[in-house]
Computed example of a mutant assay.
Amino acid sequence: MTARRKATGIALVGIAPLALTALAAGPAAAHGSMTDPVSRVSACYAEGPESPRSAACKAAVAASGVQAFYDWNAVNIANAAGKSKEIIPDGKLCSAGNDKYKGLDLPRADWPSTAMKAGGHTFRYKGTAPHKGSFELYITKDGYDPTKPLKWSDLEAKPFVNVTDPKMENGDYVFDGKVPARTGRHLIYSIWQRSDSPEAFYTCSDVVFGKGGGSAAGGSAQTADPAPSASAPTDTQIAAGAGKSSVEHHGHGDADSHTQAGAAAPSAGADDPALAAPGDANAPQPNGGGSKPVDGTRLAETGGDSSTAPLAVGGAAVLAVGAAFLFATSRRKAARHRG
């Protein structure tokens, strides 16, 4: 075997694993938020991040900034892995412990709300980048006070809706559930846990039981509800705002990191490696924790990086083409040599 043929063989052996690794590093992305009943972040986005109408959304934008609401469908933790109750602190459920969305945690009784009644209800969750996974919906207990920070103990221990891989209609996940009986203002909390990734998404939807919905008297059975009825963002609004989002909104099959600058990790126990401190590389990080993983394992866990993964896939394609060219060239030269 000539030195050139040996070099070609070594190149092919080295290229193949690199190509396969790069191709495996870019799974599809997921984004979304509840639109029926409308989540806080969706309602404020629909009002317009630059000039929201309701007092609650004005306060939320003042606390979080405009960009958080253009990124309305990315309230997430990249490495939740089913441990949401362990890694999201009390008082930070609506933001999922992410400082970027801290305005969603404001305790107040005038958040835009959706009229709700006990019994059957069809829920809708906008999936701007769909993925397989499960949805859990929790409702606040009797006596819930919206003027106090939301704690896990304010929610019923078990979800009243638990559905896996619901159908999709016109870009919405659609599923039915039976809403428990309540009076006045309450909150429905959702966890969308992907099954193909540790990533999870979270929403808080304010609801009012009784006549008049969002403008009815209600509150925590004692507090008047001056909030307007919440509206979900329209497809036109979503399309118009996509250009101002700092989160990549690729469709199914494209890579996306959900990485945001300045994202803060929720507090977690140091004894469990999966719940490491925010500074630890293994810690669960909302929206990627402001970090950009570069190795294939981390990309696969978080959904990839919007710049690194496409580059890896493109590089793999180039490498594969180059390998094929080298292999063909080698065979032609070998054939000429034998002739």
Rank of each mutant, 00 (worst) to 15 (best):
residue 5 R to K: 09
residue 5 R to M: 08
residue 6 K to C: 09
residue 7 A to G: 08
residue 10 I to A: 03
residue 17 P to C: 10
residue 27 P to G: 10
residue 27 P to W: 10
residue 28 A to C: 05
residue 28 A to K: 10
residue 29 A to Q: 14
residue 30 A to N: 03
residue 35 T to F: 08
residue 42 S to R: 08
residue 46 A to M: 11
residue 47 E to C: 09
residue 52 P to I: 00
residue 52 P to K: 13
residue 54 S to V: 06
residue 55 A to S: 12
residue 68 A to R: 07
residue 68 A to W: 02
residue 72 W to T: 07
residue 75 V to L: 08
residue 76 N to R: 07
residue 80 A to H: 01
residue 81 A to S: 07
residue 86 E to S: 10
residue 89 P to N: 14
residue 89 P to R: 02
residue 89 P to F: 06
residue 90 D to W: 13
residue 94 C to H: 10
residue 96 A to W: 08
residue 103 G to V: 08
residue 104 L to H: 09
residue 108 R to W: 13
residue 110 D to T: 15
residue 111 W to I: 04
residue 112 P to V: 02
residue 117 K to M: 06
residue 118 A to M: 07
residue 123 F to R: 00
residue 124 R to W: 04
residue 127 G to V: 15
residue 127 G to K: 11
residue 127 G to A: 15
residue 128 T to L: 07
residue 128 T to S: 05
residue 129 A to R: 00
residue 132 K to A: 06
residue 135 F to G: 00
residue 137 L to P: 12
residue 137 L to I: 13
residue 140 T to L: 10
residue 143 G to I: 14
residue 146 P to G: 10
residue 149 P to A: 11
residue 149 P to V: 11
residue 156 E to C: 09
residue 158 K to C: 04
residue 158 K to V: 12
residue 159 P to H: 05
residue 162 N to C: 01
residue 164 T to M: 05
residue 164 T to L: 05
residue 166 P to F: 06
residue 179 V to S: 04
residue 182 R to C: 12
residue 183 T to A: 07
residue 190 S to C: 08
residue 191 I to N: 01
residue 194 R to Y: 08
residue 197 S to I: 10
residue 198 P to F: 12
residue 199 E to S: 05
residue 201 F to Q: 07
residue 203 T to G: 00
residue 207 V to K: 03
residue 215 S to C: 13
residue 217 A to C: 04
residue 218 G to N: 09
residue 225 D to Q: 10
residue 228 P to I: 09
residue 229 S to Y: 11
residue 229 S to A: 15
residue 230 A to R: 05
residue 233 P to A: 15
residue 233 P to D: 15
residue 236 T to W: 03
residue 238 I to G: 05
residue 239 A to R: 03
residue 239 A to K: 02
residue 245 S to P: 03
residue 246 S to W: 03
residue 248 E to F: 15
residue 251 G to I: 01
residue 260 Q to E: 14
residue 261 A to I: 13
residue 266 P to Y: 10
residue 267 S to A: 14
residue 268 A to T: 01
residue 271 D to L: 00
residue 279 G to T: 12
residue 280 D to L: 08
residue 282 N to H: 07
residue 283 A to V: 00
residue 288 G to L: 06
residue 288 G to Y: 04
residue 289 G to Y: 01
residue 289 G to L: 02
residue 290 G to A: 09
residue 299 L to M: 07
residue 301 E to V: 00
residue 309 A to M: 13
residue 311 L to D: 11
residue 317 A to C: 04
residue 317 A to E: 09
residue 318 V to G: 05
residue 325 F to R: 12
residue 328 A to N: 05
residue 328 A to R: 13
residue 332 R to F: 02
residue 333 K to L: 12
residue 335 A to V: 03
residue 337 H to F: 03
